[in-house]
């Protein structure tokens, strides 16, 4: 390699962009030629200097905090954006409504269901109905009943075992046209045996509680109330 070539390649050499055999030729030249060696060494020192001085620049802590905060409060695109689409979605819930004389008894239980909905970090079991059923069997002290029937736009994602107050419960996780939807299911305890459907809003979420096959189920989701109202048989609508 000539000095001329060595100078032409000095940036490539500096940046580690030379092919291995070229690099060897370059190094052989640098070993033999003090002039090029000095020049390349100076560039290496210069580059190191620039990297050290500028590399110490850090993002302000206010920026870091703001980014972290925005990430944590960020909701996936589509949740709110697809409200119009979701409004056209009609959830079909199984029949079996009973009258609930004292709906206020349900409030604390619904609070638990809403808290469970918001706290979900992931399913314990992920997959289709069969997978979920076989996972839950024997793990909860009541018969396993997948709460929502198969229907277009509503997909079972998985489930996890939870508690409503002191009662064992199962939280089923659904995707309803891009909206997270949970159904918290537990066995009634006499004093609050549901006798009528209950629809309300809590923290911007629609909450519907109804009985099915001897279990209490609370549906929680950010779907508009009108959509969820569609799931309630006409005779029970508020």
């Amino acid at each position: 390699m000539t000095c001329e070539e060595a100078i032409r390649y000095e940036d490539l050499y500096l940046d580690g962009e030379m092919a291995p055999e070229e690099r060897l030729r370059m190094e052989a030249h640098l070993a033999a030629c003090p002039s090029c060696r000095i020049q390349v060494t100076e560039w290496i020192r210069f580059r190191t200097l620039v990297r050290q001085r500028l590399g110490e620049v850090r993002a302000p802590s206010s920026l870091r905090e703001s980014v972290v905060h925005r990430l944590r409060t960020h909701r996936a695109p589509g949740w709110r954006g697809t409200l119009a689409l979701a409004a056209s979605l009609v959830l079909v819930l199984p029949l079996g409504w009973v009258l609930w004389p004292r709906p206020d008894d349900l409030k604390p239980l619904e609070d638990h269901a809403v808290a469970a909905h918001l706290a979900v970090s992931g399913p314990e079991v992920q997959g289709d109905r069969a997978t979920v059923v076989s996972f839950l069997q024997g793990r909860v002290p009541f018969p396993v009943r997948i709460p929502l029937p198969d229907q277009p736009g509503v997909r079972l994602l998985g489930a996890r075992i939870a508690r409503v107050g002191t009662r064992p419960a199962v939280v089923y996780l659904y995707d309803a046209s891009g909206h997270p939807l949970s159904v918290t299911q537990y066995a009634p305890d006499g004093e609050d045996l549901p006798r009528s459907a209950r629809i309300g809003q809590r923290d911007g979420l629609t909450v519907v509680t109804y009985p099915a096959e001897g279990l209490v189920q609370t549906v929680v989701g950010d779907l508009p109330e009108s959509t969820v109202t569609g799931i309630v048989p006409a005779s029970w609508r508020p």
């Binding site: 993002a59 920026l63 870091r64 980014v67 972290v68 990430l71 944590r72 960020h74 909701r75 996936a76 589509g78 949740w79 918001l118 979900v120 970090s121 992931g122 399913p123 994602l157 996780l173 659904y174 995707d175 891009g178 997270p180």
Partner: peptide
């Protein structure tokens, strides 16, 4: 999309992307 997708994603993002802030 269920929040857990977001939570998983966020953890991964915080692990892989945030160090480059």
């Amino acid at each position: 999309m269920w929040p857990f997708h977001d939570a998983d994603r966020r953890r991964r993002f915080e692990r892989e992307a945030l160090p480059h802030l």
